[in-house]
Design a protein around this nucleic acid. Structure first.
Lengths: 336, 336
DNA sequence: CGCAATCCTGGTATCGTTCCCACATCGTGT
DNA sequence: ACACGATGTGGGAACGATACCAGGATTGCG
């Protein structure tokens, strides 16, 4: 690998001068400029990122921790983040928390040691003190996406989960359903809680009593959703509709329907939170409340980059993106 | 941020000694060891990754470039790579090539400048010279996953695409189909070519003539697949079966079936390459040829790490993973 | 008791940049 | 002619870690 000093030697100038022409600041004569540029080109010079980072105390790396990169929703976020980062010459190091606080803590520590310039993550909800001491208090900006950790003074990019869930459930109510099951997911994360809250709010607004036996509070996994959906759908009388609070839960729900030989919207109506390509590619395309995940990633990255270039005030900022209902073909009148 | 010299000062020893105890090599007295460890703990010391990298000429960062992180297949690879990396204390910087050679070239250049210790990527097929000059010739190991670039002397982790496609098509042939359409995807990448080859081979083995009008050679996108599927399925007589050469193409195909009001396996039989969770969560679960993508990521990362610790010979190695047929419920006898 | 091996330590160079400072050479205006 | 600003240049000190080297202290053994 060729270094700046190689270039300087080759161009017959000092390292200082070479540095000046390549960084484009300070006075340099036209003559030297040309010779340095030529030499750099000929030697195929590329600045050493590590050395530069060390000197400038800026790594141009941002950390991204998502719950599960295999989840379409998070991979969309990752895409949004990486593309904005690239446009601005930043690198993104990716880590999975697997929805596990211990693992999240470890990943965060590694990223702190790496001296990332900023952190974007979908919090599990824990590790607040660590985040404060390793990032916030050292002035390293942190952006929370999708979820938030209580009391953490950091920017957040969220969806209106309560409103979105409410919309979804209203679509069901509007079709005449009153016994509506919900796969709410883990109540330890803000999204799970908020979506269940939206569900309750929609019911309340229509004066329908909340029925604990209709809610599944399992993990955000297909298997857990499958089991919960079974439990909910095997009750008599069977609920006539089901709301799945995210795309993974929707997969579990869909699988349960197949196993129970139920087809939407004939036998049961179903609405999901989060959109995914397969939902519109099936025989009876799923009605969903879509949140712009890739956009969320882009917004998060933009917010972070703004912070890094000194923009924005000191106050943590929260951006709320509005989910929107996409009506397809999984909602009909209640059976019988 | 506290530095090693802070720790040393606090412990009343020299930087050298502090370094020795923390890196665990060289002679250190029990007394100094304890004092340094205590000081480090108290000051919450974490070594500066950049300084260390600069000195050691080892970044402990590996680059990962995938075609599209939103594609479930690639996100599985990413998960495999990141988890192995984490287990060994490596960081992964993620980039998307978007199936675009220009973009891939840019990303690769950025990673080279970052001085990653190694590169794992799903090649578009181009940029061979750049890869050779920026990585191979500097001794930076490169692992190709899923695809390969012709003539690049680098390790590769591949699926048996010809065999897998052949298996898929045979499942269709075994059910009695003779007019089988294929969404083959871009013929510019090795997977696209190989899967088409497997298709042809399966037909030949049964003495069935290859019919150009039954093959779609569009891009690896849903929209392109949708269009190609339409073209193929609107022919008279209509082909009785369809093979989609990857999971995205399968989504496009599924959408086309919905639009044409065709349901598998009654009206048409369908088999896909690559598995995805939704495929088993639909009314008529898709029969697929599954390739172990996460495993491929793990293998690639392991191979890379081996190379980094000086293992393996100089010869580039190729690992071939076997896809396996998962029979579900999208294949039946030909209609009429 | 002497000498070598072992243990322990601090000083210093180094990785490749950037940036500050000193110094030299120009003009240009008074 | 002199001062002073604008240009242009190179030297050298950082950034934070590691590693080599020299030298002092301690031990072991004949």
């Amino acid at each position: 690998m060729t270094t700046l000093s190689d270039v300087a030697k080759h161009a017959g100038v000092s390292v200082s001068t070479a540095s000046r022409v390549l960084s484009g600041q300070g006075y340099v004569s036209q003559a030297s400029r040309i010779r340095v540029v030529d030499a750099a080109e000929m030697l195929n010079y590329a600045p050493n990122h590590m050395a530069r980072s060390l000197r400038l105390n800026r790594t141009h790396i941002i950390g991204l921790v998502v719950a599960d990169i295999e989840n379409f929703f998070y991979s969309q976020i990752a895409k949004g983040v990486t593309s904005v980062a690239r446009e601005h010459g930043y690198h993104v190091v990716l880590a999975n928390s697997e929805e596990n606080r211990k693992l999240e803590s470890q990943q965060i520590q590694m990223l702190a040691n790496l001296r990332v310039d900023g952190l974007i993550f979908t919090p599990t909800g824990g590790n607040r003190r660590q985040l404060e001491s390793s990032f916030i208090s050292s002035g390293i900006p942190v952006i929370q996406v999708d979820r938030r950790v209580r009391g953490l003074p950091a920017d957040a990019v969220l969806a209106d989960n309560v409103g979105g869930a409410q919309q979804a459930v209203e679509a069901l109510l509007d079709a005449g359903h009153t016994r509506i099951g919900i796969l709410a997911g883990s109540q330890l994360v803000t999204t799970g809680k908020a979506r269940l809250a939206g569900y309750r709010r929609a019911l309340e607004a229509r004066g329908i009593a909340f029925d604990e036996s209709l809610v599944g509070r399992g993990l955000f996994t297909r298997d857990s959703a499958l089991k919960d959906a079974h439990d909910i759908l095997c009750q008599r009388p069977r609920p006539t509709a089901l709301f799945a609070a995210n795309n993974i839960l929707a997969e579990g729900a869909a699988r349960a329907l197949v196993e129970l030989r139920l087809v939407a919207p004939k036998d049961i109506s179903i609405v999901a939170f989060d959109d995914a390509p397969w939902m519109s590619a099936i025989a009876h395309p799923l009605t969903t409340v879509d949140q712009p995940a890739r956009e969320a990633g882009r917004v998060a990255a933009t917010l972070l980059l703004d912070r890094l270039s000194g923009g924005q005030g000191a106050e943590p900022q929260t951006v709320v993106l509005s989910p929107r209902l996409i009506s397809r073909n999984s909602v009909g009148p209640p059976r019988r």
